[in-house]
Computed example of a mutant assay.
Amino acid sequence: MTEQTASLNDRIAARVRELRAARGLSLDALATHCGVSRSMISLIERGESSPTAVLLEKLATGLGVALASLFEPPQASDDPVARLADQPLWRDPHSGYVRRNVSPAGGSSPIQIVEVAFPAKARVAYESGAREPRIHQQVWVLENTIEVTVGDATHRLEAGDCLAHVLDRPVSYHNPTRSLTRYAVVIASLPSAWR
Rank of each mutant, 00 (worst) to 15 (best):
D161N: 13
Q138T: 10
I146T: 12
V141K: 05
T149I: 05
V114W: 07
S128D: 07
L157V: 05
V116A: 15
H155R: 08
V124N: 06
E127L: 12
P119K: 05
S128Q: 08
E158H: 14
E115A: 03
G129M: 05
K121P: 09
T149N: 03
H155Q: 03
V116C: 14
A153W: 04
Q137S: 05
V114N: 14
A125I: 04
A125F: 00
E132Y: 11
N144D: 12
R156K: 01
G151Y: 06
R123V: 10
Y126K: 08
R123E: 07
R123S: 11
T145S: 07
V150N: 03
D161K: 07
N144I: 03
I146C: 11
V148Q: 12
V139T: 15
W140Y: 07
Q137K: 13
A159D: 06
V150R: 03
V114K: 14
F118A: 01
E143A: 06
P119D: 10
V141C: 11
C162W: 00
H136L: 06
V141F: 02
V141Y: 01
V150S: 02
V150T: 13
L142K: 07
F118E: 09
D152C: 02
A122N: 09
V148K: 14
F118V: 03
I146K: 06
R134G: 04
V150C: 05
E143T: 05
E115W: 00
E158V: 02
V148L: 03
E158Q: 14
T154V: 10
E143W: 01
E158G: 13
A125N: 06
E147H: 09
Q137I: 09
E115L: 00
F118P: 10
C162N: 12
K121G: 04
Q137W: 15
V114E: 14
P119S: 02
D161T: 02
A125G: 04
T149K: 14
V124F: 08
E147P: 04
R156E: 01
P133D: 08
I113E: 07
E127A: 14
A153L: 12
D161Y: 01
R131T: 04
A125K: 14
V114G: 11
P119W: 00
D152R: 08
V148T: 15
A153I: 15
R131N: 00
T149W: 07
T154W: 02
